[in-house]
Simulated assay, not measured.
Amino acid sequence: MLHTLSFIGDRLERRNITWGVGGSLLLSFYKIIDKPNDIDILVDETNVIRLNEVMLSMGKPKEALNLNPYHTKDFSKYKINGVDIDVMGGFAIKHEKGIYKLSLNQDSIVTHKNINGVDIPLCSLEDWYILYWLIPNKQEKALLIERYLRNNGVAYPQLLEEALKQPLPIEVKDSVTKLLI
Protein backbone atom coordinates (compact mmCIF):
# COMPACT_ATOMS: atom_id res chain seq x y z
CA MET A 1 0.00 0.00 0.00
CA LEU A 2 2.80 2.45 0.86
CA HIS A 3 4.55 1.69 -2.41
CA THR A 4 1.34 2.58 -4.26
CA LEU A 5 0.95 5.75 -2.21
CA SER A 6 4.49 6.87 -3.03
CA PHE A 7 3.84 6.01 -6.70
CA ILE A 8 0.77 8.28 -6.64
CA GLY A 9 2.61 11.00 -4.73
CA ASP A 10 5.48 10.94 -7.20
CA ARG A 11 3.07 11.41 -10.11
CA LEU A 12 1.29 14.28 -8.34
CA GLU A 13 4.44 16.15 -7.32
CA ARG A 14 5.05 19.42 -9.15
CA ARG A 15 1.51 19.48 -10.59
CA ASN A 16 0.29 22.17 -8.18
CA ILE A 17 -2.59 19.99 -6.94
CA THR A 18 -3.75 20.37 -3.34
CA TRP A 19 -4.45 16.90 -1.97
CA GLY A 20 -3.99 14.93 1.22
CA VAL A 21 -4.26 11.46 2.67
CA GLY A 22 -6.99 10.78 5.21
CA GLY A 23 -9.01 7.83 6.47
CA SER A 24 -7.59 4.65 7.91
CA LEU A 25 -4.17 5.16 6.31
CA LEU A 26 -3.83 8.51 8.07
CA LEU A 27 -4.71 6.81 11.37
CA SER A 28 -2.07 4.15 10.75
CA PHE A 29 0.61 6.84 10.31
CA TYR A 30 -0.19 8.00 13.85
CA LYS A 31 -0.23 4.37 15.07
CA ILE A 32 -3.89 4.72 16.03
CA ILE A 33 -4.78 1.61 14.01
CA ASP A 34 -2.63 -1.18 12.59
CA LYS A 35 -4.22 -2.16 9.30
CA PRO A 36 -5.54 0.49 6.91
CA ASN A 37 -8.29 -0.57 4.50
CA ASP A 38 -7.46 1.55 1.47
CA ILE A 39 -6.05 4.92 0.47
CA ASP A 40 -8.42 7.86 0.94
CA ILE A 41 -7.37 10.98 -0.91
CA LEU A 42 -9.07 14.30 -0.36
CA VAL A 43 -8.52 16.90 -3.05
CA ASP A 44 -9.25 20.59 -3.41
CA GLU A 45 -12.42 20.90 -5.50
CA THR A 46 -10.62 23.08 -8.05
CA ASN A 47 -8.06 20.29 -8.61
CA VAL A 48 -10.42 17.29 -8.94
CA ILE A 49 -10.29 17.03 -12.74
CA ARG A 50 -6.50 17.23 -12.91
CA LEU A 51 -6.03 14.75 -10.08
CA ASN A 52 -8.46 12.29 -11.68
CA GLU A 53 -6.60 12.58 -15.00
CA VAL A 54 -3.40 11.55 -13.22
CA MET A 55 -5.18 8.70 -11.42
CA LEU A 56 -6.61 7.40 -14.71
CA SER A 57 -3.10 7.29 -16.17
CA MET A 58 -1.98 5.00 -13.32
CA GLY A 59 -4.87 2.66 -12.67
CA LYS A 60 -8.29 1.37 -13.44
CA PRO A 61 -11.42 3.32 -12.46
CA LYS A 62 -14.05 1.53 -10.38
CA GLU A 63 -17.73 2.24 -9.95
CA ALA A 64 -18.16 5.01 -7.38
CA LEU A 65 -21.59 5.40 -5.84
CA ASN A 66 -22.19 8.51 -3.77
CA LEU A 67 -24.90 7.07 -1.51
CA ASN A 68 -26.64 8.62 1.48
CA PRO A 69 -25.49 10.04 3.83
CA TYR A 70 -22.63 11.18 1.60
CA HIS A 71 -23.10 14.39 -0.35
CA THR A 72 -19.56 14.57 -1.69
CA LYS A 73 -19.35 16.77 -4.77
CA ASP A 74 -16.80 14.64 -6.66
CA PHE A 75 -16.24 10.99 -5.72
CA SER A 76 -14.08 8.56 -7.71
CA LYS A 77 -12.63 5.12 -7.05
CA TYR A 78 -9.58 3.46 -8.57
CA LYS A 79 -7.59 0.27 -8.35
CA ILE A 80 -3.86 0.89 -8.61
CA ASN A 81 -1.35 -1.93 -8.08
CA GLY A 82 -4.12 -3.96 -6.44
CA VAL A 83 -4.88 -1.20 -3.92
CA ASP A 84 -8.30 0.49 -3.63
CA ILE A 85 -8.13 4.28 -3.82
CA ASP A 86 -11.01 6.64 -3.00
CA VAL A 87 -10.74 10.23 -4.25
CA MET A 88 -13.05 12.85 -2.75
CA GLY A 89 -13.41 16.51 -3.65
CA GLY A 90 -15.87 18.52 -1.59
CA PHE A 91 -16.35 15.73 0.95
CA ALA A 92 -19.73 16.20 2.64
CA ILE A 93 -21.93 14.14 4.95
CA LYS A 94 -25.62 14.68 5.65
CA HIS A 95 -26.84 14.18 9.22
CA GLU A 96 -29.85 15.14 11.30
CA LYS A 97 -28.69 18.76 11.75
CA GLY A 98 -27.72 19.43 8.13
CA ILE A 99 -24.74 18.81 5.87
CA TYR A 100 -21.18 18.95 7.13
CA LYS A 101 -18.66 19.80 4.42
CA LEU A 102 -14.91 19.41 4.55
CA SER A 103 -13.47 21.51 1.76
CA LEU A 104 -9.83 20.59 1.48
CA ASN A 105 -7.47 23.52 1.03
CA GLN A 106 -3.82 24.24 1.77
CA ASP A 107 -4.63 24.89 5.47
CA SER A 108 -6.06 21.36 5.71
CA ILE A 109 -2.64 19.86 4.96
CA VAL A 110 -0.93 19.90 8.33
CA THR A 111 2.16 17.79 7.71
CA HIS A 112 3.92 15.55 5.23
CA LYS A 113 5.24 12.02 5.54
CA ASN A 114 8.22 10.90 3.51
CA ILE A 115 7.50 7.53 1.91
CA ASN A 116 10.11 6.04 -0.40
CA GLY A 117 11.62 9.49 -0.92
CA VAL A 118 8.28 11.14 -1.79
CA ASP A 119 6.64 13.77 0.43
CA ILE A 120 3.02 12.74 1.00
CA PRO A 121 0.63 15.46 2.27
CA LEU A 122 -1.49 14.43 5.26
CA CYS A 123 -4.88 15.72 6.36
CA SER A 124 -5.37 16.51 10.03
CA LEU A 125 -6.56 14.13 12.70
CA GLU A 126 -8.81 16.95 13.86
CA ASP A 127 -10.71 17.00 10.56
CA TRP A 128 -11.02 13.22 10.53
CA TYR A 129 -12.18 13.24 14.15
CA ILE A 130 -15.27 15.16 13.00
CA LEU A 131 -15.76 13.02 9.88
CA TYR A 132 -15.59 9.75 11.79
CA TRP A 133 -18.28 10.98 14.20
CA LEU A 134 -20.53 11.61 11.20
CA ILE A 135 -19.78 8.59 9.01
CA PRO A 136 -22.15 5.74 9.90
CA ASN A 137 -20.55 2.93 11.91
CA LYS A 138 -17.21 4.75 12.24
CA GLN A 139 -17.63 6.25 15.71
CA GLU A 140 -15.11 3.75 17.10
CA LYS A 141 -12.43 5.44 15.00
CA ALA A 142 -13.57 8.84 16.29
CA LEU A 143 -13.09 7.55 19.84
CA LEU A 144 -9.60 6.25 18.96
CA ILE A 145 -8.67 9.67 17.57
CA GLU A 146 -10.15 11.33 20.65
CA ARG A 147 -7.97 9.19 22.92
CA TYR A 148 -4.92 10.06 20.80
CA LEU A 149 -5.71 13.80 20.92
CA ARG A 150 -6.28 13.67 24.69
CA ASN A 151 -2.95 11.89 25.21
CA ASN A 152 -0.92 13.93 22.71
CA GLY A 153 -2.75 17.24 22.59
CA VAL A 154 -4.86 18.89 19.93
CA ALA A 155 -2.30 20.20 17.46
CA TYR A 156 -4.73 22.20 15.30
CA PRO A 157 -7.52 23.55 17.52
CA GLN A 158 -8.46 26.10 14.84
CA LEU A 159 -9.70 23.25 12.63
CA LEU A 160 -12.03 22.03 15.37
CA GLU A 161 -13.19 25.60 16.03
CA GLU A 162 -13.99 25.98 12.31
CA ALA A 163 -15.88 22.68 12.36
CA LEU A 164 -18.07 23.98 15.19
CA LYS A 165 -19.30 26.76 12.87
CA GLN A 166 -20.99 24.15 10.67
CA PRO A 167 -24.13 22.18 11.47
CA LEU A 168 -23.23 19.26 13.74
CA PRO A 169 -25.22 16.94 16.00
CA ILE A 170 -25.18 18.12 19.61
CA GLU A 171 -23.21 15.03 20.73
CA VAL A 172 -20.44 15.83 18.25
CA LYS A 173 -20.38 19.50 19.27
CA ASP A 174 -20.13 18.45 22.92
CA SER A 175 -17.26 16.05 22.18
CA VAL A 176 -15.38 18.70 20.21
CA THR A 177 -15.95 21.35 22.87
CA LYS A 178 -14.59 19.02 25.58
CA LEU A 179 -11.48 18.38 23.49
CA LEU A 180 -10.88 22.11 23.16
CA ILE A 181 -11.03 22.76 26.92
Rank of each mutant, 00 (worst) to 15 (best):
D40Q: 04
Y70V: 08
H3C: 11
L25S: 03
N66G: 10
R15L: 14
T18V: 13
G89S: 09
E45W: 05
I109P: 01
Q139E: 13
N105A: 10
F91T: 06
A64F: 06
Y132D: 08
I170W: 10
I145W: 03
D174I: 07
N114V: 13
V172E: 06
N152R: 11
L67D: 08
L27Y: 02
P157K: 05
R150V: 08
L168Y: 00
I170P: 05
G82D: 07
L144V: 02
L104A: 05
H71E: 10
F7K: 09
T111W: 01
L149S: 04
L125D: 01
R15P: 08
M58C: 15
R14T: 14
G82P: 05
I120H: 02
L42T: 06
V176N: 03
L51S: 01
N137G: 10
V54C: 11
I49L: 13
N114G: 12
K35N: 11
L2R: 08
P121A: 07
P121F: 00
I135T: 09
F91L: 13
G117A: 09
K138E: 13
K113M: 12
K31W: 11
L5Y: 01
Y129S: 06
R11V: 05
L159A: 02
N52E: 14
G89R: 00
C123T: 03
P136Q: 14
L104N: 00
L102W: 03
S124A: 08
V110Q: 01
L160Q: 00
D127N: 10
S103F: 10
V154G: 03
L27M: 11
E13Q: 12
I80N: 02
V54L: 12
R150P: 03
P36M: 10
G153L: 07
I181E: 10
K173R: 15
L159V: 05
D174L: 11
P169N: 06
P121I: 02
Y70H: 11
H95P: 04
V118E: 08
V87D: 00
I130H: 02
W19H: 09
R150G: 06
I115S: 06
D10S: 12
G153M: 06
G89D: 04
Q106M: 10
I130V: 15
N152P: 09
I8G: 00
L149K: 02
E126K: 03
K94S: 14
V154D: 03
